[in-house]
Amino acid sequence: MTARKYDARLIIGLGMFGFMVAVALFAPLIARNDPLAIDLANQFVPPSADHWFGTASLGFDVFARVVYAARHDLLIAVSAVALSIAIGHPIGLLVGYVGGWGDSVTMRCLDVIQAFPALVLAIGVLSALGQGVRNLILVIGIVGVPTFVRLVRAEVRSLREHAYVEAGRAVGNSRSKILVRYIAPGTVGTVVTQAAVSCGWAILLAAALGFIGLGVPLPEPEWGAMIAEGIPEMRRGGSWWIPVFPGIAIAITVFSLSLIGESVADLVEPTRRKSR
């Protein structure tokens, strides 16, 4: 296959993700209705010209809420991944390069953290810390740290054996300079790839936490929590528009991030293309 095809995936991915970012940024221009406005006369109204995605309980406008929720979900996911990288990348660089007992201790700690299914760990820690956007970012960010530490560590361990690093050492660079100037730049590609994938994963985790009621506190709109609002209505038999639209928003966002992740991975690591 030609290289052009991968660019197409990247372009579609970036386009879709850019669209969601634009929706989040320009939410007040896109949604005419107030996402927090209560309208008791119009509860559970099916999609119409006034309410494109219908209304939920208390007459909340589902379209406005899906649009405004993009702000919360994207902010949480992007900040959480930034936090994971900010903590995980330096640790991975350091333990990968220095090795020794610091490396062993770090890896055992990661083993313990990763022994928990991420969702279980996040639910526990978040219940202890309490709800709120800041705590969500903190928890999702911390749960994501081990991935980056392992990834960067593995990369560093292979990079430090390269001839160019040895050459750098031979001309008299200090150890810290070798790490920062010679090895660290080589890890950026994998980190960027993983960042896109982790971002999608962070959105799913944020939505899952919102779904069980540990996310952004109501009445603020959040996709996962909006889907959960559909459960009681489901038992009463209807109002499909309440859970369907926020789920589609999640799927579009995560799908676009996976496309970006895959195509960037192919760019960074051309050998991967062969199996395509």
Binding site: A207, F211, I227, G230, M234, G247, A251, V254, F255
Partner: peptide
Amino acid sequence: TLGVAVPDFWLAM
């Protein structure tokens, strides 16, 4: 690619 983008709880609903 779509399979990993769809939350399981949403699919359930």
